[in-house]
Design a protein around this nucleic acid. Structure first.
Lengths: 192, 192
DNA sequence: TAAGGCATGTAAGACGTTACATGATTAC
DNA sequence: GTAATCATGTAACGTCTTACATGCCTTA
């Protein structure tokens, strides 16, 4: 992938996200960071150990976080906290303009699928669409719930993020329903 | 990344996309395939030679495409076409249900940024938002143009794909404008 | 015939994924 | 005291990215 992701910065999106979590949560162990991603709804990153542990060490090497050994029980932990330098890097990353050129078009796997949906026989295509629509509607409900659970009062920006998920998902539902309608209209009614 | 991407299939999304292009366009050279991605608006894949050339060879090894040498001028080309087996694989990939579990939530880098936007001083946060909004609005115009340029009559599914880009981008614009409004309201007016 | 881009690749590197390994803690 | 799970890692692997290399082919 090479570090270029977005803008001029030198940090991966995952690195920045980890940095951000450490910044928000205060001192935390790599494990706690992992939980953050494991529990997160967005499936972008798996939060796998193989990703996180090397990553925080990388961040420490670069001086963006600092770890202090701490003992809970008889077990050795490392609590990571963000350094001043790390804060600067985080700000630089957040500030970095999105999408160098023009097209800030995000990736939607359903869109890719749609391009080749004509490879399927009509019946299967319709059934794919209706399955996907079901999944999307479930996602929409989740997004609504998440949005309610993060009120504006608490962390405004977390609410905004949840709202993004909501609006985007709603748009995708609308889109796919529209597609379904057109296909049904054009291929003849079918109830299943 | 390991091949798991989406569903139960065994093919990467990029592999499937390449397969799909070969299927749609008929016999084509790796170079032509690259152009497809280079010209594409979606920045998901760079269409780099280092990705495509090894990939088509991989597909051929797996029997999904077959290449026949062809000569134009004095230069050797290879025209790739999809095999029956390849067609089956493409269909299997298209048909594969999206998102195993529940959350079919797509990734939006702006959403990630939003989570940590509070790291910036208010003025910078606002200016980030307004820059991003500008970029998004440009993307929206592009999406509208793309949508007009791919009429329903020609390739229905290409039109649907363009329409997806349009609706999703529109939702993102709406979202970010909403965020901007709230921030301005809550932080006091500011014209710049 | 020299310049520039077309078309085909290869090389090195980064990142994240699954899968495995291992010791500490807790539950029963 | 044994089993499950917590918490910390490491190993191997695959994929894509940038950067480079190299001949063809057109055009001026």
């Amino acid at each position: 992938m090479a570090r270029q992701e977005s803008g001029t910065t030198d940090t991966t999106e995952l690195e920045a996200a980890v940095l951000g979590v450490v910044w928000q949560e205060g001192p935390c162990t790599p494990y706690a960071i992992r939980q953050h991603f494991l529990e997160s709804r967005a499936p972008r990153w798996s939060g796998s150990a193989g990703a996180i542990y090397p990553l925080v060490r990388r961040l420490e090497t670069r001086g963006l976080v600092r770890s202090t050994p701490s003992v809970r029980g008889r077990r050795a932990h490392r609590d990571f906290r963000i350094t001043r330098h790390g804060g600067t890097a985080l700000k630089r990353w957040v500030r970095a303009p999105i999408s160098l050129g023009d097209g800030a078009l995000i990736h939607d796997p359903l869109r890719t699928r749609m391009l080749f949906l004509s490879a399927l026989p009509r019946e299967e295509a319709l059934s794919f669409v209706s399955d996907a629509l079901g999944a999307l509607r479930r996602a929409l409900q989740q997004a609504q719930k998440d949005c309610r659970e993060k009120p504006v009062g608490e962390d405004q920006f977390a609410h905004f993020a949840a709202r993004n998920a909501l609006l985007v998902t709603r748009a995708r539902v609308k889109w796919l329903a529209e597609v379904q309608g057109r296909l049904k209209a054009c291929w003849g009614e079918r109830l299943s």
